[in-house]
Every structure is written in structure tokens, then in C-alpha cells.
Write a protein that binds this DNA or RNA. Structure first.
Lengths: 74, 74
DNA sequence: TACGTATGTAATATATTTTTGACATTATGT
DNA sequence: ACATAATGTCAAAAATATATTACATACGTA
């Protein structure tokens, strides 16, 4: 796949706003705690479905949480 | 993972607007043609990265192409 | 008819995401 | 000092996404 951009996110910010622990987010979404940790540390790209679940939990849009920053642009 | 909603998309609509074949979309994004076919037929949830690449190709936002329709809501 | 293009299916292989479990660290409260 | 909660690391397994190849069908058109 192309690598036009780099994925980044503000998951920990949205999580802090809600006052949730990583474990609590994991439980609410129905994934493992490891998954939340890995996403916050930007280890890989989640499935679109998981991205939607997170956006829904945090009452916001996917693109408010996740950004795709095109390389070589500023 | 939770199944709060069902994923759907209008990939074929956006593709038609651009006048691209499935093969052309695949080539531009750098994935296989099978992947495009499977997504259009809603076989699985793509990675968020791929969703961003598609949105970028079609000059629109992820949530314009993909929807997460909450179950039991109308 | 024959050729090229577009879409589709199916099977198997590879890559990536997600789970599981065990353990370490730091901070807070008793 | 001890307990508990929160975050983190690591490794291996399981699940899902993606690639690859081969083949089928339909359509337009030379």
C-alpha cells in the first residue's frame, strides 16, 4: 500500500477528557487493554471499525481523533 | 470487539464519479484489485490507513465514503 | 468470431491487527 | 511496608486483512 501519509492520533487526549483509564476504554469498546495501549503509542493502524467505535465512545469524528499527515507537506 | 454498528460504504459511487476502474483504483492506492472488490462488496473492514488513502484519492472525508450505522436506530 | 476490458469468485499464502498472559514500574492510600 | 490502580513491556497465539494466481462471465467493438 501507498505510504502517502503518516497516521497519528490524540487518543490519550480524548481519553483523559472523559477521565477513563485504558482498561476502561478497552472494556467499553470490547477490545483488549493491549490494543488500546498499542494504538495510543501509534504502533499500527486500527481497523476502520475500531476507529468508528472509538470515535463513538468519545463523541466525535474519526478525523478528529486520527490524522493522516501527508509526507513532504507542511 | 463491540458490534454497535454496521459498516457500509459508497466506494463504487465515488469510483464511478472519477471514472476509474477497480484496477485503476487498486494501482493508484497500491493495493490489489481483490482488496478493492472485497471492500466494495463490504466483505470486511479496511485498515484506517487504507480508508484514509481512499478518501484522499476521492477528494473527500472518510465518513463521506464509510458509514457506521448504529444497530437498532432509525 | 475473436479480442480486450471490466467485474467477479475461489483457494491459498502472507502480513497485519488483536488477544492472552506474565511480569515490571510508578504512584497513591492505609 | 503493603495493597491497589494505572501504565507499560514482551512474546506467542489467534483472528482478520491483504496478496496472489487462476479462472469465469459479460460487454463492447474490430
Amino acid at each position: 500500500m501507498n505510504e502517502l501519509g503518516e497516521l497519528s492520533n490524540q487518543l490519550s487526549v480524548f481519553r483523559a477528557k472523559k477521565g477513563y483509564s485504558q482498561a476502561e476504554v478497552a472494556k467499553r469498546i470490547g477490545v483488549s487493554r493491549q490494543t488500546i495501549i498499542s494504538l495510543e503509542k501509534n504502533k499500527y493502524s486500527p481497523s476502520l471499525k475500531l476507529a468508528f467505535e472509538l470515535a463513538y465512545l468519545f463523541d466525535t469524528g474519526i478525523e478528529d481523533i486520527f490524522q493522516y499527515n501527508l509526507k513532504g507537506e507542511d
